[in-house]
Nucleic acid binder design. Sequence first.
DNA 1: CACTTGACAACAA
DNA 2: CTTGTTGCCAAGT
Length: 107
Amino acid sequence: MKKKNYYEAVYELTRKIPFGRISTYGAIADYLALGSARMVGWALNKSFTGKDVPAHRVVNRKGELSGRHHFPHPDLMQKLLENEGVKIENHVVQDFDNLVWKPADEL
DNA sequence: CACTTGACAACAA
DNA sequence: CTTGTTGCCAAGT
């Protein structure tokens, strides 16, 4: 399999995020080494619709739901995460340090 | 082709 | 909390 565009790599990686876990732009960008965290956010922006990408599991380095504004409804992201057992407080993931998932985690 | 913007990171002040 | 800086790359204007 050849490597697709960087955004498809982001999509796949985002899909690999286990249930009840989250990831960060930095972790994804660092693992893919495709460019930078901005690329991840930009890719997710286009991916959250039309693709089965659980973009709600991707947060910024602070564990903040930075991307909630791009969802159909801003509070949807938080609701989805809470539905997976992830506690959110003030748009920030609780136990973020413990829930953050990295691609290398399964290696 | 140049400039700006973007779901960012990371640090400094 | 805000503001600034540097890096990174693509898309939009």
